[in-house]
Simulated scan of single mutants.
Amino acid sequence: MTPKLTHIDHWIFDLDNVLYPAECDLFALIDVKMGEYVSKLLDVDQQEARIVQKRYFHDHGTTLAGLMHHHGTDPHDFLDAVHDIDMSRLQPSTTLRAAISALPGEKLVFTNGDRAYAERVLENRGLGGIFDHVHDVLACDLVPKPEKAAYHSLIGTTGINPERSLFVEDMARNLRPAKELGMTTVWVNTGSEWGARDHGSEFIDHEITDLESWVTDPKIDKETGPL
């Protein structure tokens, strides 16, 4: 699909598996923490906890959303618990920092995690202080991507023009609402089953495998977005 080119004023990035390589696999650490949380909350073994965890993720967008819906889970307690992980897998990238900093216009992070976790990731990745805004799940009133309300929250809070925005995301299904709002969409295909779930070429303008290689590519027009 060839998108209509327009001037990009707002560069929006998902956090996990986008602003750091998927090979770091921070989610594996978070996944363990979520399993432990669900197991303790529901008083079930690890195997049953994992089944519940993945079902909630699929049905509600995030495990947290499912836990809140079905069990009234305190979101702050959950987020504090599952994001209490070792960040040593992350390495700073001066190349990525310079490339993102050089993009014209606003730079934003749009994540289903919370701000505290996002800021820890950014600092450990060497990307602290270069984003104009971090819009987290708490700012979205705990409504996660791909729910449309999350995108309207981002737009309402920041005042961005979606038709002059580009959104980079590793979960294909999270790009559909962005495209419907007029954003240019970039899917980071990490090769994961979850990332490709509900993929649709009609709402994905560009497919890449690595953010750093893409954003430093000299063929990319930094005024109009990728060609």
Rank of each mutant, 00 (worst) to 15 (best):
T2V: 12
I8T: 03
I8N: 06
W11S: 11
I12W: 13
I12K: 07
V18T: 04
Y20I: 04
E23G: 02
A28R: 15
A28S: 15
L29I: 08
D31C: 00
M34Q: 04
V38C: 09
S39V: 14
L41P: 03
D45H: 13
Q46I: 15
E48D: 13
A49I: 11
Q53V: 04
Q53F: 14
R55D: 10
H58T: 07
L64A: 05
M68H: 08
H69K: 13
H69F: 07
D77T: 13
L79S: 14
L79N: 11
D80K: 10
D86H: 09
M87V: 08
M87D: 01
R89I: 06
R89Y: 03
L90F: 05
P92E: 15
T95N: 08
T95R: 14
A98S: 03
A99G: 01
L103M: 03
G105I: 03
E106C: 10
K107C: 14
D114F: 10
D114N: 14
A116K: 03
Y117G: 03
A118T: 07
E123G: 03
E123D: 12
N124C: 01
G129T: 12
I130P: 05
F131S: 09
D132I: 00
H133K: 11
V134C: 07
H135D: 06
D136E: 06
V137W: 01
V137M: 00
V143I: 15
V143L: 12
P146T: 12
A149F: 04
S153V: 08
G156K: 11
I160K: 02
E163F: 11
F167K: 09
T185P: 07
T185I: 02
V186Y: 05
W187Y: 08
N189S: 08
S192W: 02
W194R: 01
A196Q: 01
D198Q: 14
H206K: 01
H206S: 05
T209A: 11
T224F: 03
L227Y: 12
